[in-house]
Each structure stands twice: as C-alpha cells, then as structure tokens.
C-alpha cells in the first residue's frame, strides 16, 4: 500500500482523532489556566489554611506522573464514589497536572512585578483587590505569557495520554490503525507530523500573537 493509499483509507479516522485531540487540548488548557491562577493567587495570599491546600495540590501534581494521575482519576476515583466519563477524566487530569506547573508561573510573574507598582497603587489608596486586579495582574500576564507558550505545547503533548484510557484521540486512532494494519511507520509517523503541525504552526503562533497583543495593550510594543 502506498502512502497515498494509506492516507486515503485512514484519513477519516486520523481527522476524527485530531478533532478529539484538539478538543481535549482546549478543555485541558482551560482547566490548567483556571487551576494555575486560583492556586497561584492562593499561594501568595496570607491565608494559611488555603495556602496549605494549594501547596499540597501543586506538590502532588508536580511530584507524580501524569499517567499515574490519569489512571488514578479514571480507575480509582469511581471506587471512591466519583465516576468520571473517560473524556472528562482525560482533560481534567491533564489540565490539573499542568495547572500545578502553571501555578508556579503565575506566582513567579506576580512576584516579579516591581515593588514600586504595589507601592504606587497603595499611595493612590487602592484596595488590595484593586491593586491585584487592576495594577499587578495585567503586568504579570505579560511577564508569564512566554513560559505559558511552552506549557501549552506540553499540555497538547500531555493529551496523548488520554488514549490510554480509551479516549479516541489522535494517539488512540494511530494505535488502532497500527494494530489493524501493522503499518507502524505510516500510522505513528503521520500522527507525529500532525502533532508537530499543531504545536509548531497552531499553538505556538497563537501564543506569540497573544504575547504581541498583550504587549501592545500594555504599551511596550
């Protein structure tokens, strides 16, 4: 079978898988951003009990493997009374895992906003919430966007693991095709190229564009 024939036969499944991968990526990214902002802010706040919760979340998810977390979500949580659809367990585990990494980016960016900005906001008599939302966070956002670009690629790659709990994503379809045809180079090779195109020509340019837009809004460009 030539490669063109291979594509003719299996492009439908590869496209379906790619769409699932894209969906998993978008949902996991949203979970990661939300988890990162919430736990990053809590870690900076002076609320001891909440701080402990955020620390435990960050250390557990950064200290163990995504695959272990995924299996735990899918196989163990139901035993504890929380049953998750495999699709939901997939993006939730991926999102929470990378959210823990993102939390450190949020925390680091907020801390690297110059002290003078806090002081100027205080001198204008702004409330703590106003200082954070109107003055610090917009500037922290610009600082943390470049590393978030890398993290987004990691999230995309992380979604490949959901195939192991049978979410029919690109990874899953490539494996199915391989099992049916033994055309490993074609099946896995094509999937590799599709992931590469997503990462290099969709996710990365999108994040760069976001960086530029934010930099312009902050008046740095």
């Amino acid at each position: 079978m030539s490669y063109l024939e291979f594509l003719g036969n299996y492009s439908d499944r590869l496209i379906d898988g790619s769409l699932i991968t894209l969906l998993q990526f978008v949902l996991a990214a949203l979970v990661a951003v939300a988890a990162a902002i919430i736990s990053g802010l809590i870690k900076l706040a002076q609320l001891k009990p909440l701080q402990a919760v955020a620390t435990v979340y960050i250390e557990i998810f950064r200290g163990t493997s995504l695959l272990v977390q995924l299996y735990w979500f899918f196989f163990v949580l139901p035993l504890l009374g929380v049953s998750l659809e495999k699709f939901v367990a997939g993006f939730l585990a991926v999102g929470l895992c990378y959210g823990a990494y993102g939390a450190e980016l949020v925390r680091g960016a907020i801390q690297s906003v110059p002290r003078g900005q806090w002081e100027a906001a205080l001198a204008l008599n702004m409330s703590p919430a106003q200082r954070m939302w109107r003055i610090i966070l917009p500037q922290a956002l610009v600082i943390m966007l470049p590393p978030w670009g890398n993290l987004m690629v990691e999230i995309l790659k992380g979604t490949a693991l959901v195939a192991l709990i049978s979410v029919p994503d690109l990874m899953f379809e490539a494996r199915q095709i391989n099992n049916n045809t033994y055309l490993s180079a074609q099946a896995f090779g094509t999937a590799l190229v599709i992931y590469y195109i997503f990462a290099r020509f969709v996710v990365t340019p999108l994040m760069r564009w976001l960086e530029r837009v934010m930099a312009r809004r902050i008046g740095r460009a």
Binding site: E119, A120, A123, P138, Q139
Partner: peptide, 18 residues
C-alpha cells in the same frame, strides 16, 4: 491615606495605562 499623596524616585507609573 486619602489625605496623603506621594511621588517616587522611580515614578512607578502604571506601564499598562496611558
């Protein structure tokens, strides 16, 4: 604090605002 205003050595203008 409403009674007091301050100017700083390094200005500390908010960079994301005109």
């Amino acid at each position: 604090r409403a009674k007091i205003g301050m100017c700083f050595q390094h200005f500390n203008l908010f960079p994301h605002m005109t």
